[in-house]
Amino acid sequence: MITDIEKGAAVRGTAATDGRKAVITWLTVVTVLVFAMIVLGGVTRLTNSGLSMTEWKPITGWLPPLDEAAWVAEFERYKTFPEYQKINKGMSLDAFKRIYAFEYAHRVLGRVIGLAFFVPFVVLLLLRKIPKSMAPRLALLFLLGAAQGGMGWFMVKSGLVDHPDVSHYRLTAHLGLASLIFAALLWTIFDLVERNRPPAAPAPDRLRRASYFLLALIALQILVGGFVAGLSAGFIYTDWPMMGGTFIPDDFLSLQPWFHNFLENPSTIQFTHRMLGYAILIAGIWFFLISRGADVDRRLRNGALVLLALILLQVILGILTLLYVVPVSLGAKHQGGGMLVLAAALYVLHRIRAASPAKAAGQPRG
């Protein structure tokens, strides 16, 4: 016979499960929007649209120019800045509208993400659907999102002064913070999904170490990719596997002191990006082989396979992007592919960390 206490516990358990599903759905939607934002940011960069909006209006910047007079006024303002004067002099109003559209969409999507996070966060918090232990983390994520908006304008400002291009350091910081937010959202979703799930068999230490090493390489590659984008280093050498007919470009260490080449020399940075790509591919194969030879659960095995497949696809996209001289379509896919590789690496690491040696004994495999 089921007691009232047991019935109450069952109801509370069902409510907790429903609340967790609601939070997972909400965070998944936000994560997809952040992914789209990162890809759109790459498109904005590749179409040279990022400096078309020369003001930052966080509250009142929802609407674009609404009539021809407003468009003319916006275009006249753009003409007073270095990008028009040094690169786009003589541009038509219609051409200006086209580049403006990408930057406008990028900024509006940022505001949409802010609302998509903040409003459900408050509602779910009031309804007590969010686990108490997770509320501070989610609040920090919102603050990081707000900081990302400020970082974006800080980046744009660097291209509105003398040189009509944004600082590659600020661009990399902008990309790095976006990637961190994307990764933190995914990790939070994985935490919620894993709650109350039977623990898997613990993974071998070498697999754990390999997962950390692979994730570190991927994170470094994303930052180097920011340098590549900021310095337009992808346009320097467009042959493969060589660079200007040699494996190591002739101007690899042309700057002094030598370490400046890894910060300022487009050729060195493209070479570094290529080498890291190869290193990630080798590490991905190594991780996959270790996972196949270890006694691990099915989800981790499948995650390792997906991770390797995404790495291979990303390498192919990178090569094609070079050979076709960085077209917008391939460049955007390459940036999106980088985020998918990051997501897969986070998943396998989370699966490894979720395995509890103390609880795994006697538990069925997932």
Rank of each mutant, 00 (worst) to 15 (best):
Ile2Asp: 10
Asp4Trp: 00
Ala10Glu: 15
Val11Trp: 04
Val11Gln: 12
Thr14Val: 12
Gly19Ala: 04
Val39Pro: 05
Val43Arg: 10
Leu46Met: 11
Ser49Thr: 02
Ser52Phe: 01
Met53Asp: 02
Pro64Phe: 08
Phe75Leu: 05
Ser92Asn: 09
Asp94Ala: 14
Ala95Lys: 12
Phe96Gln: 07
Ile99Pro: 01
His106Arg: 07
Gly110Trp: 01
Leu115Ile: 14
Leu115His: 07
Val119Phe: 12
Lys129Phe: 00
Pro131Ser: 06
Ser133Ile: 10
Ala135Tyr: 07
Ala135Ser: 11
Arg137Cys: 04
Ala139Asp: 00
Leu143Gln: 01
Ala146Ser: 13
Gly149Ser: 07
Trp153Phe: 11
Trp153Glu: 07
Lys157Met: 14
Gly159Met: 03
Leu160Ala: 02
Asp165Arg: 15
Thr172Tyr: 06
Leu177Cys: 02
Ser179Leu: 09
Leu180Thr: 12
Asp191Ile: 06
Arg195Gln: 15
Pro199Thr: 10
Leu207Ser: 13
Leu215Lys: 03
Leu220Pro: 00
Leu220His: 01
Val224Tyr: 02
Ala229Asp: 01
Ile236Asp: 00
Tyr237Ile: 01
Phe252Thr: 06
Ser254Tyr: 11
His260Ile: 03
Asn265Val: 08
His273Asp: 06
Arg274Val: 01
Met275Thr: 12
Tyr278Asp: 00
Ala283Tyr: 02
Trp286Leu: 13
Trp286Asn: 11
Phe287Asp: 00
Phe288Asp: 02
Leu289Cys: 13
Leu289Arg: 15
Arg292Cys: 09
Asp295Thr: 04
Asn302Cys: 00
Asn302Leu: 13
Val315Lys: 00
Ile316Asp: 09
Val325Arg: 15
Val328Leu: 10
Ala332Cys: 09
Lys333Glu: 12
Gly337Lys: 00
Met339His: 00
Ile352Pro: 04
Gln363Lys: 13
Pro364Ala: 09
Gly366Asp: 14
